[in-house]
Design a protein around this nucleic acid. Sequence first.
DNA 1: GGTGTATCTTGACATTGTCAAGATACACCT
DNA 2: AGGTGTATCTTGACAATGTCAAGATACACC
Lengths: 213, 213
Amino acid sequence: MPRKAVDKPRAGSNRSYHHGDLRRTLLDVALRLLEEFDPSHVSLRAIAREAGVSRAAPYHHFADREALLAAVAAEGFRSLRAAMVERVASTEGNPLERMQEMGVAYVLFAVQNPQLYRLMFGGELRRRESHEELQRESGAAYAALGAAMQDSMETGSGGGGEPGNFALSAWALVHGLAMLLVDQRVGKPDMSDQQVEVLARQATEVLGRGVAG
Amino acid sequence: MPRKAVDKPRAGSNRSYHHGDLRRTLLDVALRLLEEFDPSHVSLRAIAREAGVSRAAPYHHFADREALLAAVAAEGFRSLRAAMVERVASTEGNPLERMQEMGVAYVLFAVQNPQLYRLMFGGELRRRESHEELQRESGAAYAALGAAMQDSMETGSGGGGEPGNFALSAWALVHGLAMLLVDQRVGKPDMSDQQVEVLARQATEVLGRGVAG
DNA sequence: GGTGTATCTTGACATTGTCAAGATACACCT
DNA sequence: AGGTGTATCTTGACAATGTCAAGATACACC
């Protein structure tokens, strides 16, 4: 384990005793640290340090470390959903294509926020069901995905499959691809967004043929 | 953080000073603890304690905690590969069906060893590329998967897709489904193997139509 | 039997999450 | 204005972790 910093509020922090909006600041700092480190290595103390407050300050805004990270994850799901709906909104085409674009947005989000994505989907949050906001936001994101699939199925030229199957396959495919990319098990270390897009479109195309065929 | 045990070798351990095969024991214990806890909560000290040795003993067999866990993960990949080849070996049918069975084996393995699967694919191991055995074994597992796909493509009734696309899609689909199941984002809390099999087969079927269509 | 070396233990340190008790300052009421 | 209450923040403390250095032990070989 690294040995480095002492546990005092950051020097140069000229905030007053009362912070103003520490809750918001903690979330921002946590998100920033998450760009740099694995979720399991983002410590409460480091967040507090970076926010310029003492180690125990966060406990007045979050029950514990997991609650803070859960809040960050919840915001992640909100962003994910926003990215998906925004993308379909700016896409013309039949429902199947639009759903494909949604998948692309999903994968892009993962690649652009790998650690956040890991926090959202990894095992770091062990009591996921007990974090209300997280439940709500992740549910909303899934709902958006599900709605798009519903559309594409209704218009789909009726391959033999049931809707449930297809939805599950699509979600699994997109989620799996995101995981493989985030974990760098697939693709080059530094892929451009364009390259990721192409990859995601290719992967989902096979599935599209499966349902449309 | 929990407060509980003291850091002494387990009482009742009547081993001699020298252990015999501590390395093996540590791996076994780690795997056992992994059935119970998240990878990030399997501590070196707990492993040592459970193995009946002092906290520093593992350092004579592994460079650090991550190296030990990497070795466990490597064995996980060995098991995964074994499960897959065993399954295809006992399957008759065309290459596409055989590959589908491989996917089923993959998903089954994940569901039956959720924490191990998380260790193998999650972000806990940050220096994956520096663990030689892990690299080797995971490579071998992927190779087995890839080979099966190669077969199924060659015999496949030539849909429009390229082999690379299909392979990627298949892997992503299977991996994603495994993840969703392991994280309990899909399926009931305690599904039987049969139920998982059905689910996996349904999911991969859509893909099969995509390539065969 | 003596010596060497691999193996294991003990002690120590920096780090973490968390709680309890004290300090501070803002907000409101008279 | 002044006083009081309460939300907010800090300090001190404890158990736990990973890791290293230095000491103890026992097996293996000459």
